[in-house]
Design a protein around this nucleic acid. Structure first.
Lengths: 155, 155
DNA sequence: TGACATTCAGTGTTATAACACGCATATTTC
DNA sequence: GAAATATGCGTGTTATAACACTGAATGTCA
């Protein structure tokens, strides 16, 4: 019933292994969701990476986070957080302030404008999640979440 | 037993919905697999995108594919296939030839060097899939593949 | 306390992705 | 069969990602 990935990508040969098919399925599905998410955000003027940062910083209020803490919590690898934050600071979405206790650290916090934007997006984003995944049952979702967690165990 | 994504990302608040948790789990898992894959390929001098192109072109022998067919079969969205192929042509991994029947088309094919590189990588790549996903049972893998296919149904 | 190592943020540079546009070739329509 | 439309590829440009390196601040240890 459900068409397999091989058809989707018009592949002639079968997959080498279930493991390979699973990995490609994960990456493929992720890319589709990720791209759709970016398109959704685009009219609002931020990328999904920036959105991710805002979400993290909202959760880290009122203390904020330093650059590396933020980087470690991000969904996707981001080697150049500094300039990402530069742009967000310029857009008045975040503020940065050097810590007085440890002057190596720069504490980043979300601004009111950032928080307002995020609040506007909350509904839009949740609707998107429903649109993309709402056709799965609760059991299917739980099973999927659990299986992916097992995958991530092996780093 | 399996630690959840919330712990992994040090999130304080629970997820808004199962749908959201599932989407984030998919994207997170994909990024980990994808990054590991890129690191694996790096010593061999190609990116995962280029690897993907080579795989597709190997499967499309002996006719090859035109640019847009290739783009449509790629695992990830790629708006700038032309310059990707430019680089690969320069590295002698692919050849391009304008079609004589329809002179709008440019047929791209894998070179011997590209095919050789790919052959070298076959084992390495399959080992990587085993390393990342080999700890799941066949039933778990099938279930995961099937669930992801259901997710993709809603475009 | 002074030398050494470590941690943190930022910078310089190159490579790649993203987007809008343009030109050539085919196809359609009247 | 000429004009209009569609399709396919390439290019110019800007934005962002990736990587290696620098310098400041802190911690460590003799």
């Amino acid at each position: 019933m459900t068409p397999d990935l091989r058809d989707e990508l018009k592949q002639r040969k079968p997959f080498v292994s279930l493991e390979q098919e699973a990995q490609l399925s994960i990456v493929r599905t992720s890319m589709l969701l990720f791209d759709a998410f970016e398109q959704l955000l685009k009219p609002h003027g931020i990328s999904s990476t920036q959105y991710n940062v805002l979400r993290i910083l909202r959760g880290a209020e009122p203390t904020g986070l330093c650059r590396n803490e933020l980087r470690d919590r991000m969904l996707t690898r981001m080697p150049d957080v500094t300039r990402l934050l530069d742009r967000m600071e310029q857009a008045d979405l975040v503020t940065r302030e050097r810590s007085s206790e440890d002057r190596r650290l720069v504490r980043t916090r979300i601004t009111k404008k950032g928080a307002r934007l995020l609040r506007q997006l909350d509904d839009v984003v949740e609707q998107e999640h429903q649109r993309r995944l709402g056709h799965l049952s609760r059991e299917q979702l739980k099973s999927l979440i659990s299986l992916l967690s097992v995958v991530r165990q092996k780093t």
